[in-house]
């Protein structure tokens, strides 16, 4: 971690996202997808957001960019570069200062040549020259810009997707699950590109369910569970038996990895329409006491990280 640049770029506090759905006729119900989520990211740092699928990781990305669907209701506070992130501010920033690296090639227009799609992220300067430069940097042959997304190989697609974000001058880059089921070599290459981007001073938010990828790349890791962050810890805390970790879920996650004992815990993530009223992890936690079942633990700082657990010390 670079010591000189530990200023916060984006601070998300108490973010909640609820969706309104019509079940039958005019009867509505609301679904709480993200609850009291707090996370922050500094300049020049890679923050990994790790959690099982369905824990609301992508929604966080969409909430920061302000591209949630119309039936979503966002509550809480987001501060970007010292300014409150309002919808108008988001509209002005997205694509320019905040960029998204999407999951797959399906996020590219199937009928548009990839060169043109990368160029549409450039707002000033000679766009063709800039696009060629970035293609060159990512070892994409000159002819690639004339290809359509369906003609790209897996590795090329990955580089083009990274290029869409790298071509601008984004200060916050959100990579939403950028390495799903890819060849280890391509995964390593993509992660290296993300590291490079953070080395130039951009903050990179890496959203993934691949803990090893996160550990390899990130400075800090935020662990997601059922729509909230249960712990934020320096990547170096993920070591040994997990004794440096603060939250039982992070420990369980760590110990479930094949190289760390391969021990699963019982149960599964609570479904969003039937959440426990106390700590969200309490029903599966071996440390759970009566407190845990009734009161939601506050987020508190602990040993250079943050956690939401009554018992953490």
């Amino acid at each position: 971690m670079k010591k000189e640049a530990v200023t916060t770029l984006l601070e998300v506090s108490d973010l909640s996202i609820t969706f309104t759905q019509y079940i039958s006729g005019l009867r509505q119900r609301t679904i709480r997808a993200i609850i009291n989520l707090s996370v922050n990211i500094n300049h020049g740092e890679v923050l990994a957001i790790v959690g099982a699928s369905g824990s609301g990781k992508s929604l966080l990305a969409h909430a920061i960019l302000g591209i949630l669907p119309g039936n979503a209701c966002v509550d809480g506070k987001m501060v970007y570069a010292g300014e409150l992130l309002t919808p108008a501010r988001q509209a002005a920033l997205r694509g320019r200062e905040i960029a998204l690296i999407p999951q797959s090639v399906n996020f590219l227009d199937p009928l548009m040549r990839v060169g043109a799609q990368v160029r549409s992220g450039i707002f000033n300067g000679n766009s063709t020259a800039l696009q060629r430069e970035i293609f060159d940097r990512y070892h994409l042959a000159v002819g690639t810009e004339q290809l359509f997304p369906f003609q790209l190989s897996g590795g090329m697609a990955r580089r083009v997707l990274v290029a869409t974000a790298a071509v601008g001058s984004a200060r916050l880059i959100i990579a939403d699950e950028p390495t799903p089921g890819l060849h280890p070599m391509i995964v390593r290459e993509t992660l290296a590109h993300l590291r490079e981007l953070s080395a130039t001073g951009s903050a990179v938010m890496l959203i993934t369910h691949d803990i090893s990828a996160a550990l390899e790349t990130a400075d800090r890791i935020a662990v997601f569970y059922a729509g909230t962050t249960v712990e934020t810890a320096p990547a170096s805390d993920f070591c040994g038996d997990g004794e440096l970790l603060r939250h039982p879920y992070s420990k369980a996650l760590w110990q479930a990895l094949p190289q760390n004992g391969f021990q699963p815990i019982d149960g599964s993530q609570p479904s969003i329409d039937n959440l426990p009223c106390g700590c969200l992890f309490a029903p599966r936690c071996s440390l759970a006491s009566r407190d845990c079942l009734t009161t939601v633990p506050e987020l508190r700082s602990l040993r250079g990280g943050e956690t939401r657990c009554h018992h953490a010390a």
Binding site: I67, P102, M112
Partner: peptide, 28 residues
Amino acid sequence: SDYVLFARARGESGLQVLLRHGLRNIAL
């Protein structure tokens, strides 16, 4: 579609999305 979501994430407005991606993809 995912690609329109991505276009919006890249700061394209509703009209831009229509002109750049919408018409192109419904024309056929």
